[in-house]
Write a protein that binds this DNA or RNA. Structure first.
Length: 275
DNA sequence: TTGATTGTTACCGG
DNA sequence: TCCGGTAACAATCA
């Protein structure tokens, strides 16, 4: 369900509530019984996020690796926690808080090497201060895949999801069909800078899920998104079209999708102030 | 009840 | 090899 900023937000919130605490870990459905027993009574040292992945640090190099996928959710309860819902896979409790994890794509106990392996397969995460955009650029410039697909590739841009891909391409006026190898360097730089800005604001702004809450230009229009699940450009009224690519919906201005030979479209920016 | 989804992986064919 | 498409997994909502 979430994009990177939401996952980082979860990590920050859960770290604040649970780090340094001894935890009670249970498996209401019985689907995580052995793992829960290994964690029970241990001290949760830290919660950290890499892209859309979460790692819960336990003593002796033991990690709980969680990826929410499409349907995963967290429920954070204060002290008298309600009985776990049917879909709760793991319940982690301290004196003050109870965290339920529901329907994750990944939920497993791993060691240091496995954690490093997961992180090594991820591209730079714009939300991590040490992220190196050159690593993403090297992959983008060598690929003939469309930039719309590259943006969703976690091995290139860790943490970007379907919404921010569409919104970034729209606001930077880049044709989603453009192959990575034809993307000019300055366009890549604008994509990266925009991702950093939006994702960081997304982490700071609380339970942020829309670009409208993060981008001042869009906020003025009262819209949630520029193009995602929309039908017309908020400034010009130009038609927005959508199509399926790589199994996911892509949203873009119709003029951009109908350009024929893919190229960056130097469209005049109307009514849109960038920074 | 059906279908779609802010996701990922494996597998197949061109 | 690279690239694009499909199915599978799964919980929830309209």
């Amino acid at each position: 369900m979430p994009e990177g900023h939401t996952v980082h937000r979860y990590a920050r919130q859960q770290h604040a509530h649970f780090a340094g605490q001894r935890v009670r870990v249970t498996s209401p459905q019985g689907r995580f019984e052995a793992e829960a027993a290994r964690l029970h009574g241990k001290t949760l040292r830290a919660v950290e996020a890499w892209g859309k992945h979460l790692f819960y640090a336990f003593p002796k190099g033991l990690w709980l690796h969680v990826h929410l996928g499409m349907a995963g959710k967290f429920d954070l309860h204060t002290h008298p926690a309600p009985p776990p819902r049917e879909s709760v896979r793991v319940r982690i409790a301290t004196k003050g808080y109870t965290l339920d994890l529901r329907g994750p794509n990944t939920c497993r106990l791993i060691g240091d090497e496995d954690r490093v392996a997961v992180i090594d397969r991820l591209g730079p995460d714009p939300l991590r201060p040490d992220a190196d955009p050159e690593q993403a650029w090297e992959k983008v410039r060598k690929s003939r895949r469309k930039i719309a697909l590259l943006l969703m590739d976690q091995a290139i841009f860790a943490g970007v999801g379907n919404i921010y891909r569409a919104e970034v391409l729209f606001v930077e006026r880049i044709n989603p069909h453009l192959p990575g190898c034809d993307l000019p360097r300055d366009a890549f730089d604008r994509i990266w800078a925009r991702l950093v800005t939006w994702l960081r604001l997304g982490v700071e702004s609380g339970r942020i899920i829309t670009v409208g809450e993060v981008d001042p230009a869009l906020a003025k229009t009262g819209r949630r998104f520029f193009v995602y699940k929309e039908t017309a450009c908020p400034y010009t009224g130009a038609a927005i079209t959508s199509w399926k690519e790589g199994g996911r919906m892509v949203y873009a201005l119709a003029v951009e999708s109908a350009l024929g030979p893919a190229r960056v479209k130097p469209m005049p920016v109307v009514g849109l102030e960038t920074d």
